[in-house]
Amino acid sequence: MEQVAARRPRRFYILVFVLPAFILYSMFMAFPLLDSLRLSLYQEQAGGPDVFVGLANFERLFNDPVWSERFWNALRNNFVFFAVHMLVQNPIALLLAALLTTRGVRGVALFRTILFAPTTLSFVIIGFIWQLMLSPLWGILNNPAKTLGLPTPLLGQTQSALVTVSLVSVWQFVGLPMMLFSAALISISEELIDAARVDGATGWQTFWRVRFPLILPTVGIVGILTFVGNFNAFDLIYTMQGALAPPNFGTDILGTFFYRTTFGGGATQRPNPIMGTTIATIMFLIILTGVLIYLFGIQRRLVRAES
């Protein structure tokens, strides 16, 4: 259709409409992100301007033992953190969403409200609640865990701390993918499911053969959102374990590593904002890679499968 406005030569109002958002977004989001990437190529110099050092900061991050050990540790932990979300959070969310959208189930609104409730609480509250729940002094969960033969205290053992923190995060966020899956499942037409039923398929079979393939695009979205969220995570570990991410950096992920490096910590550690930007750049690249793989790999294939 022909644009009405196109007939007028000067369309000043377009500028008025676009400029506020453009300026705000450019100044306080695009610029800081790009400038932060730039800063990672510099080094601070006492009393003078920053000096350009090329990729030296990255070289140190990857190879200098003072930095590299922590960096690879945080990166590895971050992948574990992500894996727990993919393997636990999203399947549970899918299960709950499937049950909530099953025809004839009563009290859906109430269940949904309760299941989503933890997601509305802040990290600070959730972090402290779970720290208390897991405390060996209080014993609410520590004693049952011990009875089950798990390594206790769960937050203090190298082999269990990271998974425990990840599971708390799962507890907090399971509501979000659940909502996304629900929204997608609801939009599936009833006829398709009925047709499957008539063919004698069980609920289980209907789900995997009919409903699940139809929500694959949502599975993709949930996957990429989980990825971005996890590689940008910081708050929960900070509130549960503190910036030092004990035991022995066992729960350190890129976000806490970034914070500690940028702002210092402890009684005697000086902050290092430039190395902070170097870590931020790596996080940026990781997230960008994930997003690109999603956009050009997964999403394309999903859309094709759908059509």
């Binding site: 003072v66 203090g156 004990p246 035991p247 022995n248 009684a267 005697t268 550690q269």
Partner: peptide, 23 residues
């Protein structure tokens, strides 16, 4: 002594519990 890029004193907050825990 703790003036290095990585503060020894601060690292000791992590290292000391790690030794006690047998890591």
């Amino acid at each position: 002594l703790s003036r290095g890029e990585v503060s020894a004193d601060n690292e000791n907050w992590r290292i000391m519990p790690a030794v006690i825990q047998g890591v």
